[in-house]
Design a binder for these strands. Structure first.
Lengths: 248, 248
DNA sequence: AATGGACACGAACACCGTTCTACAATAGAA
DNA sequence: TTCTATTGTAGAACGGTGTTCGTGTCCATT
């Protein structure tokens, strides 16, 4: 009875293991070398995003990569939006969640966030899709559940923990998206609009006196190698948690 | 010598007041009732976004609203990206920055963030454009400068303040974008994918036992009227600041 | 062997951002 | 006042996007 893509999608938002048995292909596979499956679609989609960024992921490009036409994809996927959701789901499935520990919970939660960040950055721009992902997706819920478990093990008040998870995931998404966008601007530096840190420093130096602090602390404003800012913000949020244990 | 749009844009990133004199129209204006100006473009663009959301803002739609063809816009605006930047600039220009006060600095910084949030939410989805906005835009720099001034008045270490501003603005953007996306999903509830809080509660209740905490604390996870989560996160970040005054 | 159903796919639709080109109208020069 | 160069206006078109329709093709079952 092979479910339609719509049904598959609905199932992904209800209870279920998330990976229903591949269901031993029944229909025709044409003269194709490899039949088109949802997994194949997701796989090549990740390949495209990894190499060329999320912006390059179009239905046509994806179809070309699979050596078929665009319409063929719609037998397996409802939408581009649906494809996005599948990608985010797969990505979240890769996250491994530690056994919550009442002592090391801070490191644990930071570790999960870092995993998320690195996954997002591995596929540049994909965090854009994460924003639109509905909160009822099972794979993303699995990560939320894991983070909730960690915070609760740390003795955080449930309401605080729930909101904190939301904030953390939102920030990780936003941070990753911003990094990806900046990298993209750097890579296609033909128009070279905003660029290196040195140039930014120059520009800050050239500002009118209406910007006294920006000029004076240009060094600090443009500082931050690798992921210093990321660690800083996570620390800010997590260290602020315990003092809110009894939330009004 | 009327600058080209490219020159105008470049000027926006160098020093300048931001509003060069309107320069008394010289060229022809055809039989037009109202000539097309950058201000007119920005104005109607805001109108579209306010009524129909950022996704509805296309060059063609904008041209139609101005009773002209798409190509006419490119005499005043470099790109769609450029238009986005203009919109964000205008939006930031509306923010009013308080005189920094060493006592009330917490409320002041929260107030600025709230202003930003409300502006973003007034024009649903526009925060998407804010992500891409280059950090050298004068109008956005003005807001940064103001926030920096407030934090410094609060006695925060410059490096900490610089990073905190970054985090705060990033979070405000992300929060506004998320809210807008959720609202959009609610409004076009034909597909009614994810919906009311009640439905979300039901869905959480129907989860398998692999999600014990999510099921148990479904109430907390879905709680948060209006902007509770926003205030919570801002509080988290700001209250965490002073203890980092001496940053490594 | 025949049939039904699942799958693949080419063509097309409506839309997007952007560019090319020709056009009209004014401001200044003669 | 006439002429011309400048400059904003626009129509048409290009290459791209997501998505749908109808048709074709093959397999597994009867």
């Amino acid at each position: 009875m092979s479910p339609t893509p719509q049904e598959r999608r609905a199932a992904r938002h209800r209870l279920g293991t998330g990976s229903s048995a591949p269901a031993a292909r029944r229909g025709p596979s044409g003269g194709r070398k490899r039949p088109i499956t949802v997994d194949a679609i997701i796989g090549t989609a990740f390949g495209i995003v990894e190499k060329e960024g999320y912006e390059a992921l179009t239905m046509r490009r994806l179809a070309t990569e699979l050596e078929t036409g665009p319409s063929s994809l719609y037998a397996h996927v409802v939408n581009k939006e649906d494809l996005d959701e599948l990608l985010i789901g797969r990505l979240c499935a890769e996250i491994d969640l530690p056994e919550p520990d009442a002592v090391t919970w801070r490191r644990q939660i930071i570790d999960v966030c870092t995993q998320l960040r690195d996954q997002y950055l591995r596929y540049p721009g994909i965090s854009r899709a994460a924003f639109a992902a509905a909160p009822s997706n099972l794979d993303t819920l699995r990560v939320s559940e894991g983070m909730l478990a960690i915070l609760l093990a740390g003795g955080i008040d449930p309401q605080t923990a729930a909101w904190a998870i939301d904030s953390l995931m939102l920030y990780v998404n936003a941070y990753s998206l911003e990094i990806s966008l900046v990298n993209r601007r750097l890579s296609r530096s033909d128009h070279a609009w905003v660029v290196s840190r040195d140039e930014l420093l120059d520009r800050f130096a050239a500002l009118p006196d209406t910007f006294p602090h920006t000029k004076r602390y240009a060094e600090e404003l443009t500082a931050g190698t690798t992921h210093d800012r990321f660690d800083f913000t996570l620390g800010l949020m997590i260290d602020g948690l315990p003092r809110q244990q009894r939330n009004p």
